[in-house]
Amino acid sequence: MRSALALTSVLCLAACGGARPAPEGARTTVVSLQKIDCEACGAELVADLRERPGVYAVSFDRRRAEIVVTASPSFDVTGTVKQLAADEGFEAVIGAGKGHYAGWATFPEGADARTIAEGGADIPDLGAHVVKGKVTVIDFSARWCLPCRKLDAHMARVLGAQGDVAYRRLDIGDWDTPLARRYLKHVPRLPYVIVYGTSGAQVDAIAGLSTEALDAAIARARGR
């Protein structure tokens, strides 16, 4: 079973394992998290809130970057979550639909880098996005995936130094989206990177963060 699913199970235990029966009059509040850089940020808040007196249930939706808290009317959900978020360097606002992750790395001006899929939207033909005459790196990633962010930052440095490399990022959204179902059925972890040579032929595919393996694949891809 892919490690991402195992991690999801851990997060679910953190979010749901300590739920207490909610008495009549308990209130449910949705808090959107902003500028977080991985799903662990939300899981840590859930773990903290779960131990607080007056909190009956907490869950975290990693795709929407939202925490749902069921608590006693006397428990200050807003103030507590905002303070916890501030302590970790991100923001929290009350209400659904306002959560978002931090942006991707900033690439040098003129770098051949772009996002070609957002939120798991399907891309039927990867070949259409391979740049002939350049080494093309196709990166399946997700905004909640911290190793994906590390790889993205590495690619910003690569493109800053190597003008013959093109980078195409695909945000899978989650493991159940059309994009993930098409390409990642047998992929155990993110990021998942496919490297194509200058002729358009696939040279390597790498699951998980390994900048050393990626750099080696890029070097091999030249002239192939």
Results as ranks from 00 to 15, higher is better:
R157V: 15
R157L: 11
G160Y: 05
A161V: 08
Q162F: 00
G163F: 00
G163L: 03
D164R: 05
D164K: 08
V165L: 09
V165Q: 08
V165A: 01
A166N: 08
A166Y: 11
Y167T: 06
Y167Q: 07
Y167S: 01
Y167M: 06
R169C: 08
R169N: 14
L170Y: 07
L170Q: 11
G173Q: 06
D176L: 04
D176H: 13
T177M: 07
T177G: 00
T177A: 01
P178R: 03
P178S: 01
L179M: 10
L179W: 10
A180Y: 09
R182L: 08
R182M: 12
R182A: 08
Y183E: 12
Y183V: 14
Y183F: 14
L184P: 11
L184E: 14
K185V: 12
K185I: 14
H186M: 14
V187R: 15
V187C: 12
V187A: 10
P188S: 02
P188R: 03
R189P: 00
R189V: 12
R189F: 10
L190I: 13
L190M: 13
L190W: 07
P191E: 01
Y196S: 02
Y196E: 06
G197S: 05
G197D: 02
T198G: 06
S199Y: 01
S199K: 12
S199H: 05
S199A: 03
G200P: 13
G200L: 01
G200V: 05
A201R: 14
Q202Y: 03
Q202G: 00
Q202S: 09
D204F: 03
D204A: 14
D204Y: 05
I206V: 10
I206F: 02
A207R: 10
G208R: 06
G208M: 04
G208P: 11
L209K: 09
L209M: 13
D215H: 04
D215F: 06
D215P: 07
A216V: 04
A216R: 13
A216K: 12
A217E: 05
I218N: 04
I218C: 02
